[in-house]
Design a protein around this nucleic acid. Structure first.
Lengths: 215, 215
DNA sequence: TTGCAAAATGAACCGCGTGTCATTATTATA
DNA sequence: TATAATAATGACACGCGGTTCATTTTGCAA
């Protein structure tokens, strides 16, 4: 007794999930994590109240799924950026430039919701585990990138590459926080990123003078 | 027709407020901002449900009052620290050392609640104003401190002191965030603070070699 | 001791978000 | 066209935190 009627069940199911995650991204970007409700997401996705529970049980589940999706997309983008240049230092310059460009619209992305999600949830067992995983992955990837520069002879670091990665990561998160707090202008975020790049140049001991980032 | 009965109204009123704020500090340190409820605070303060509204209307009001109280206490402590030494650089060293010592217990203080309060509330008009005021004040004070070192001839900065203050502030907030995320060990927070001190030494162009912070 | 106003209480109400479930709509097959 | 399984709906009940307010308790003065 196979189904007597259903025409869609396989690809459509995935389609639905995508629909939910895309709606969720818009909602979380607009309202942040805590203030967003299942109702908001349901309405944004043009679904009905109960239907969404067939796919995701809680807001948290949706958020985590959305994060994974965005992480994958991000990984692709980073790899493309890496393909544009053979020099690790040049890649860092490009990355920082991109970071500066994104500052202005930071508050309209899901990034604030990310910070909110973890900062309000670090007492929660599940989230702490997730947070630790994400931290380790990002530090591992950044360390690997820096180390590849060392191996290629581009850098002569004065500090372990893992430490340098940690410093860069915390500085960037701090700058982001201050941008959210008072805006990119008042926090002088662009200047801070330029300073960070110069600082990284020192810590890494870049062999050749950094190409000026004028463009 | 003066009161026919009240024996306490003036100092006791202030006493009550203190009682509430101290209870609130314990609650916010234990649970963070959002998860804490008026009920928690009322119970911690050994008051009854409705009574607290005679003093504070909302949780937010209590939190802000508590912040102001802690800020005042903090200002006193910083001034004391400044009195211990005539050198601005030495003061920075002491401050960083103190910061390192506080890392271990960071998650048991109200500091996480501070971050939470602002990170979840930066879309709110009132909080944004408060946040901007606090940001400006802290940057102003730190800039003034650094500038006093310049004026005394201790420093020959390569960057505006205001910029250096902003960099230090965002780096410290970033380190704090990562400590809350994965702990002081995994984020190598102590090493990061040492590196920040050295970085500040470079940016400020300290005239004499920094005294090693061994003690 | 009595009266009265202020202090203090906590039951009850309100608004809101969540999650369920009885009901309705859709669609492919017989 | 009939029918049955599945897709989809949205009204409703529940829990929770915030807030109010009628009531009780307290303590001083008359």
């Amino acid at each position: 007794m196979k189904s007597v009627s259903p025409k869609v069940s396989d690809e459509h199911k995935e389609q639905r999930r995508l629909q939910i995650l895309e709606a969720a991204e818009r909602v979380f970007a607009r309202k942040g994590y805590e203030p967003a409700t299942m109702k908001d997401i349901v309405e944004e996705a043009a679904m009905s109240r109960g239907w969404i529970y067939l796919y995701y049980q809680t807001k948290e589940e949706i958020f985590v799924a959305m994060m994974e999706k965005l992480d994958q997309e991000n990984a692709v983008r980073i790899r493309q950026l890496g393909d544009q240049t053979g020099s690790v230092w040049k890649l860092l310059e490009l990355w920082m430039e991109e970071g500066k460009r994104e500052l202005a619209s930071l508050s309209e992305t899901v990034i604030p919701a990310f910070y909110e999600f973890f900062l309000t949830g670090w007492r929660n067992e599940r989230r702490q585990e997730l947070l630790r995983l994400r931290y380790r992955r990002s530090i591992r990837e950044l360390t690997a990138l820096l180390q590849s520069g060392v191996d290629k002879g581009e850098f002569r670091p004065t500090l372990e590459t893992g430490q340098i990665a940690r410093i860069a990561a915390s500085q960037i998160d701090g700058i982001h926080m201050h941008v959210l707090a008072v805006g990119a202008e008042e926090s002088a975020a662009a200047v801070q990123i330029d300073a960070l790049l110069a600082y990284l140049g020192t810590l890494l001991g870049v062999s050749r003078p950094a190409s000026s980032s004028s463009h």
